[in-house]
């Protein structure tokens, strides 16, 4: 349960999540992204029946943008670690934010580019591993 949801500016809202609260759930449809104002959020996925932590995010980081940008279900769970204050953006307020705060777009591109690079490296490592096993 999200404790608070107050309007901030230009359609943006602020939410406070309590410790252990699931802010987004993998598979759910969502049209909002979140920017962490304070506190920490654990991003995790269910893999082979296990809950695997993908990353832990802190102030200034954001999550949930993939569902917002692509209108597809959530890819992972996001769970509050301690009390967390979040800025909540939907499509309209994201567009206003980008108009007024253009550096946010650059930060999003920078983070997404970093994730693509990391995934490419993981894919390459997995392929090398697979080939090494095949040659044995």
């Amino acid at each position: 349960m999200l404790l608070l949801c107050v309007p901030v500016r230009s359609g943006e809202t602020e939410k406070v999540a309590i410790d252990g609260e699931r802010i987004v759930r993998a598979g759910d449809h969502g049209s909002e992204m979140y920017v962490i104002k304070s506190g920490r959020v654990r991003i995790s996925r269910q893999m082979a029946g296990r809950d695997v932590t993908m990353s832990e995010l802190g102030p200034g980081d954001f999550f949930g943008e993939m569902s917002l940008l692509e209108s597809l279900p959530r890819d992972a769970d996001a769970i509050s670690v301690g009390e967390t204050r979040l800025l909540v953006l939907n499509a309209g307020s994201l567009l206003v934010r980008l108009r007024r705060d253009p550096t946010f777009a650059l930060e999003m591109l920078h983070r997404l580019s970093g994730r693509v690079r990391a995934l490419n490296a993981e894919l390459e490592a997995a392929l090398d591993d697979h080939e090494a096993k095949g040659s044995r």
Partner: peptide, 12 residues
Amino acid sequence: AAAAMLLDRGFD
């Protein structure tokens, strides 16, 4: 106003 908008994103 711009500083307030950025501070809203988690900057101290």
